[in-house]
Design a protein around this nucleic acid. Structure first.
Length: 716
RNA sequence: GCGCGGUUAGCUCAGUUGGUAGAGCAAUCCGUUUACACCGGAAAGGUCGUAGGUUCGAGUCCUACACCGCGCACCA
């Protein structure tokens, strides 16, 4: 017997060595196949395939607890299917994570007293690239520490040359099909980051502010944002509002306003809610979506009041150059002194839109940007989802997806940052028309003949990751695409269902005509022990590397799986992990007992306990097939500890017949356990084969020299 | 306002087609009988959010309500 078994199980002395063994075995690559089904085949012409594209990890930091969950769940799926003889591919990837990474890097710059706004874009890009590459190797090592059996020979990065080229081509195709267009529209702008967002990067927040009732000529208007009112020369009311029946659409009125007399124009529009405030409002089309639409309907002027950094423009007169946050009280002071403030409601509760990163108030701005028409894409996606071409786990996410897809709006894919894939386009300086231009050959506007300049913006990072399944498989011409697309399952966090999952479905269908995956498995968030969201500012971040170091990776992994149902968030407690560390040691000691006490031969006792075990195996296998890993793992845990150890082993101390059942059951237990706790089971497997059981015994039958548990056949 | 979840033992949560409630952790008591004290045994702990309904029977299906969470939405 291996002397290691005489001491408690030590993950530190085991895990690195075992991972290396796996990597060198070739079993991470689908070409290798399982030794009991086929010989290696570089053309992949065998068996059924099972594939998962790993959600590309943001290459801007370290693995967090959520990554730990991703790596564990996906590895469980992959190891299980591999043991069932599938041609199994788990493709790892890294994401440049455009804005996210830029924000991380900006914080670093800030600490050094620098700012990206003062930097040469090329230098900034190079710095972030170096930073990202540095992080990449760190992250890859951490993924390996988790035991991830992914195929590193196929690793992709969203900024790989071939990927970038494909992303550019996708844009061109969308443009040629009329699906991507340059639009002068109102976009969500963060004045702090100086970047425009799609509708998803906005976080709604309830706030209590002051609501001001201001005298506007004969009317009283209500506003929560007096600092936007400088350009308000239209006053709008509902056409059916009897209170204002005397005023006609288009009628002009002279009145005294913030910086002197102005001429206001009456506009009648049904968008007005007669019940709200006074039923009269003025509009700021440049900085408000609803106002923009009213202005569009009536062909009204649109004027910019606030610049891109949140400061007032010259239209604000004496307030020009002042930041809006400082300007508000000053403006109210002035309005008061002119007697234009009717009253102030200090307890006005409303919902404001903020930047999801920094919480800064979103300042809508009219900008010329690239948009993708989403309605036709969503229609196709909806058809496929409703037809059941994509199964959601848990299934209520299907409804959530449908709900979102049915209300989808066009996607702004322009980002004003350097860290990303440059949009291959030219913009006409005369008429604003935009043209896709892959080869950099367009020299004049194809509409007005005006002068064109290169678009300086980059793509929203989700535009590239939204195409990840087929891009990472080398669409359209690689054998991987043919062998593994559509992928079997997309496993990711429920929190990015719109950002990522829905967009992958839409873009996948659009580009390839096929859904990118057949199943979406969505896990919940990993929370701290008190079920609070982890955040650096709260100081409650749990680092998975610390935990694997302390308790072993196997303990961490199975703690992430047991009792963790899909879609539900997981409060991660150290106690639970400690419990499974004990379990790893229990397995270790059971092995010692089995090796010391097992006996060969048949008996009635053996027949009975094996029959009972067969039922457990069937039950667990059904759970694995149906992605109920939280049940499968708990059942094998329970069987091993409380049935096999507490009863069968205890009885076998008194009953020699019982000893005949030990080895066959234990070997199968190790196989079933392997996807959950791969390191300790692989280590035991190698020690058991080395111990060469006596002749005639149900020993380990290995025709292949690669005597590894990772490639064993699932015992059911 | 619309949509989606949740509400089960002190804590975190299971409960897959309806058949007299389960796990882990914590807490209690007993036990060091040679695989393991990173252990074993025992006992304790819930009228399954509330109110109705369907059923021979409901944590499980239906309706309403309450509370918590999340998502979507341009109410100035």
């Amino acid at each position: 017997m291996d002397p290691k078994l005489l001491k408690p199980y030590d993950p530190k002395k085991t895990e690195g060595r075992i991972y290396k063994l796996w990597e060198e075995s070739g079993f991470f690559q689908p070409e290798t196949g399982a030794p009991w089904t086929h010989s290696p085949d570089t053309n992949l012409n065998f068996g059924k395939s099972f594939s998962i594209i790993m959600p590309p990890v943001n290459a801007n930091g370290s693995l967090h607890a959520g990554h730990g969950l991703v790596m564990t769940i996906e590895d469980v799926m992959i190891r299980y299917k591999r043991m069932r003889g599938f041609k199994t591919l788990w493709l790892p990837g890294l994401d440049h994570a455009g804005f996210e990474t830029q924000v991380v890097y900006e914080k670093k710059l800030e600490k050094e007293g620098r700012s990206r706004f003062d930097m040469n874009p090329d230098n900034l890009y190079k710095e972030i690239l170096d930073f990202t590459l540095d992080n990449s190797s760190n992250i890859k090592n951490q993924i390996k520490k988790m035991g991830a059996s992914c195929d590193w020979s196929r690793e992709k990065f969203t900024l790989d040359k071939d990927i970038v080229e494909k992303v550019r081509q996708s844009f061109k195709k969308l443009y040629d099909d009329g699906m991507a267009y340059r639009g002068e529209k109102i976009v969500s702008w963060c004045p702090k980051h100086r970047i425009s967002f799609s509708d998803l990067e906005i976080k709604d927040e309830e706030r209590t502010d002051s609501f001001y009732y201001l005298k506007y000529g004969p009317f009283v208007i209500g506003t929560a944002r007096p600092e936007t009112k400088f350009g308000d020369k239209y006053v709008v009311m509902h056409p059916d509002d009897k209170r204002y029946a005397d005023y006609k659409n288009g009628q002009k009125i002279k009145l005294e306003w913030i910086n002197g007399p102005i001429t206001a124009t009456i506009v009648k529009d049904e968008a007005i809610d007669m019940e709200f405030g006074t039923g009269v409002m003025t509009i700021t089309p440049w900085h408000d979506t609803a106002d923009f639409e009213i202005a569009d309907r009536h062909g009204l002027d649109k004027e910019q009041i606030i610049d891109e950094t949140g400061k007032l423009l010259p239209i604000a007169g004496e307030f020009a150059g002042t930041h809006i946050n400082k300007a508000r009280p000053l403006i109210i002071e002035k309005l008061k002194s002119k007697g234009l403030v009717e009253k102030i409601d200090e307890n006005y509760k409303h919902i404001v839109r903020t930047c999801y990163k920094c919480g800064t108030l979103i300042e809508p701005q009219i900008k010329s940007q690239w948009f993708i028409k989403m309605k036709p894409l969503a229609k196709k996606a909806l058809e496929n989802i409703k037809d059941g071409k994509i199964k959601y786990i848990p299934d209520h996410y299907q409804k959530i997806s449908i709900h979102w897809l049915e209300k989808i709006i066009d996607w702004n894919i322009s980002r004003q940052i350097v860290w990303g894939i440059p949009i291959p386009a030219k913009i006409c300086q005369a008429c604003g028309h935009g043209m896709a231009d892959l080869e950099d050959t367009i020299s004049a506007c194809d509409k007005c003949g005006g002068k064109v300049l290169k678009d300086k913006d980059t793509f929203d990072t989700w535009f590239s990751s939204g195409q990840w399944p087929y891009l990472s498989l080398g669409y359209p011409d690689q054998k991987d695409y043919a062998a593994f697309y559509p992928t079997s399952i997309m496993e990711t966090g429920g929190d990015i269902i719109f950002f990522w999952v829905s967009r992958m479905i839409m873009l996948g269908l659009y580009m390839t005509g096929k859904v990118p995956f057949n199943i979406v498995y969505l896990h919940g968030m990993v929370l701290d022990p008190k079920a609070q969201k982890m955040s650096k500012s709260k100081g409650n971040v749990i680092d998975p590397m610390t935990l694997t170091e302390k308790y072993g990776t196997d303990a961490f992994r199975i703690a992430m799986i047991v009792g963790n149902t899909p879609g539900t968030s997981l409060a991660l407690s150290e106690d639970k992990i400690r419990g499974y560390k004990n379990f790893a040691n229990k397995i270790w000691n059971i092995t010692r007992f089995v090796l010391e006490n097992q006996k060969s031969g048949e008996s009635e006792t053996k027949k009975n306990v094996i029959e009972e075990f067969e039922n457990i195996k069937k039950d667990i296998t059904a759970d694995m097939e149906n992605y109920r890993f939280y049940l499968a793992s708990e059942k094998i845990y329970h069987y091993i500890w409380h049935k096999f150890a507490d009863e069968i082993i205890e009885q076998s101390k008194k009953d020699d017949d019982m000893k005949k059942s030990l080895l066959p059951i234990w070997q199968d237990c190790l196989k079933i356990l392997h996807p959950f706790t791969p390191f300790v089971t692989e280590e035991i497997w190698s020690m058991m084969s080395a111990s060469s059981p006596p002749a005639g015994q149900a020993g380990i039958d290995r025709p292949d020299q690669k005597n590894l548990l990772i490639a064993e056949k699932w015992p059911c």
